[in-house]
């Protein structure tokens, strides 16, 4: 048991501010009977220890696929065709299954989308958290010690410690979600991936849990990758963000900067179509059409069938990532044409 952490922690704990995870050109397809689904395409992002990164995009753009691949839990029909995932310098894609198993939860843990069903119905919540502790805690904990640890985690996420002896069905949705976060925190991972952790909850509980998560992350100095289709949520919890469209990251940079001056037409439309509660009232700009079928992604820029700024070049050639300075990256031929600020009536700007 004691050796688990030593083996897993070959890379050791990355110091705050140093690079924790580097995803480079990650590409992954799903093989189906009808053909290959290009769900993740040339995805690159870097995350420093202690930082938080948001991934935002419409449903089906490959957010969950990226997240699962980081833990190497992608579906059995998935095939990684390129790229690397470096955790503290070690490429996770090169590890054996057993080595990878030791990294899971001790280094990277995850709060799943639809975490409501993340609990095994026949075991008590506490038992299920204890299972993670037994697997990954550097030393073997006694029964009392692990109960103490779970109680501590429960307090951290705002659950009454005595609830650990209950079964999942005795928890409300919000409680289950908090418990899921507690379990993700249990082994002090370096990175937590939170995939739409609050979408299934009502707005008030959603807000409480977000605040809790943010607080805990700051207190414990973990990194977090926060996935959501809701750009407002991303704004609230992250320092950096990537905007995903059809399996690609199309814009990447500081969250505040992208919010102030989105450069990619998709990001710009996404932001314009989000009602702002705090800012001035504005008409919602339309994001028309559907995301493409990833079995046959559009040629050139994958956004061109829906893009108000599209030119002939867009359909023919794929735009490369361009650095606008200060780590603000965008992949668009016509990013200068995107108006600064969110337009009330975007059509006039065309």
């Amino acid at each position: 048991m004691t050796t688990t952490r030593e083996k897993a922690g070959e890379t050791g704990r990355v110091k705050p501010g140093e690079s924790l995870i580097e995803v480079n050109h990650l590409t992954m397809d799903y093989k189906t009977k009808e053909g290959r689904v290009s769900a993740v395409s040339d995805v690159t992002f870097h995350l420093k220890a202690g930082d938080s990164l948001g991934l935002v995009g419409e449903s089906g753009c490959g957010k969950t696929s990226v997240a699962l691949t980081l833990l190497r839990l992608q579906a059995s029909n998935a095939e990684i065709t390129g790229g690397e995932i470096l955790l503290g310098g070690v490429n996770l894609l090169d590890l054996s299954e057993e080595e990878m198993r030791l990294h899971r939860w001790s280094d990277i843990s995850m709060v799943f989308q639809g975490a409501m069903n993340a609990w095994n119905p026949v075991y008590r919540i506490g038992e299920q958290i204890r299972e993670a502790l037994d697997l990954h805690w550097p030393v073997k904990l006694t029964h009392e010690q692990s109960r103490e640890r779970i109680a501590e985690l429960f307090e951290l996420v705002g659950l009454p410690p005595e609830a650990m002896d209950r079964y999942p069905h005795e928890f409300s949705g919000g409680m289950r979600q908090r418990a899921t976060i507690a379990m993700a925190l249990s082994c002090n991972p370096q990175l937590i991936i939170a995939d739409e952790p609050t979408t299934a909850l009502d707005v008030i509980v959603q807000d409480q849990i977000l605040k809790e998560l943010k607080k805990v992350q700051a207190e414990l100095g973990m990194s977090i990758i926060y996935i959501s289709h809701d750009i407002a949520v991303i704004a609230e919890v992250t320092d950096h963000m990537g905007v995903m469209y059809a399996g690609k990251i199309v814009e990447y940079g500081g969250t505040d900067e992208i919010f102030a001056t989105p450069r990619h037409p998709y990001a710009w439309l996404l932001l314009s179509s989000t009602p702002s509660i705090t800012g001035p009232r504005r008409k919602l700009a339309p994001l028309v059409g559907e995301p493409p079928n990833l079995m046959k992604p559009p040629s050139g820029c994958r956004f061109h069938p829906r893009c108000p700024f599209a030119t002939d070049q867009c359909a023919a050639e794929e735009p490369a990532m361009e650095d606008l300075g200060g780590g603000h990256l965008v992949a668009c031929w016509n990013h200068e044409k995107v108006p600064v600020g969110l337009s009330e009536t975007p059509k006039e700007d065309l």
């Binding site: 198993r101 899971r104 939860w105 001790s106 799943f112 639809g114 993340a118 697997l135």
Partner: peptide, 11 residues
């Protein structure tokens, strides 16, 4: 889903 959770936990 809980099977995926278990796998993610490194069980």
């Amino acid at each position: 889903d809980y099977i995926l959770t278990a796998r993610a936990k490194g069980v």
